[in-house]
Amino acid sequence: MAHGSSEKIVSTRVICLVIMLTSINLALNYVMIGIPNVKLMDLIVFLSGYLMGLVPGILVGVLTWLVYGTLNPFGFNLIILAATCSSETIYAVFGWLLKKLNIGSDIITLLDINGRKFWFTSLKFGLIGFLATSIYDLITNIASVVIVGLSPIMAIISGVWFALIHEVSNFAFFFFGCIPLITALKKVLPEKEVIEL
């Protein structure tokens, strides 16, 4: 690398994007607060990791939760906040990994929605969304129930519907949202400024 990685991380445009995406996340979270466990935030964090790299992706997730977890009408709990902050990074990690695996790298050519490849790539994103969400739910459900003092099995049982709603909705969001949003965000984030960690 010609420049140090820290120099790349503090790229002004990336910082602006991190702040913008965090703001969008917060706005979306508060708008969708009435729909339990259906949030577009996970998709945005995933895309941050996919487009900007691991650290900006994690930053978007953690910053969003620091605000949303603190100023939340359902109340504040430090253990849950820690669990959600750390679990949200899973989406950034998955996004970053998918970029490394070159999934959807030919996304501009995928814009032909009649193409078989478009739907196949969307399905891949959907599956990754489902998988990442199931890991996220497992961690956060266990953390939530540990506070109450129940066993981890009880955590899975008590949160099963919430988890399924979360996973199925994220599957749909990732399936339908990834390719259009990646295409849109790539326009404001030229390839040379994408952070490669």
Binding site: K124, L127, F130, L131, S134, I156, V160, A163, L164, E167
Partner: peptide
């Protein structure tokens, strides 16, 4: 690999549903 990931997702959903109906 993608077929395996798809099946894994189905397995997770099945485990959730089975757990729910068992409870």
């Amino acid at each position: 690999m993608w077929v395996s990931i798809g099946l894994l997702c189905l397995l997770i959903a099945a485990i959730y549903l089975a757990t729910y109906y068992y409870s």
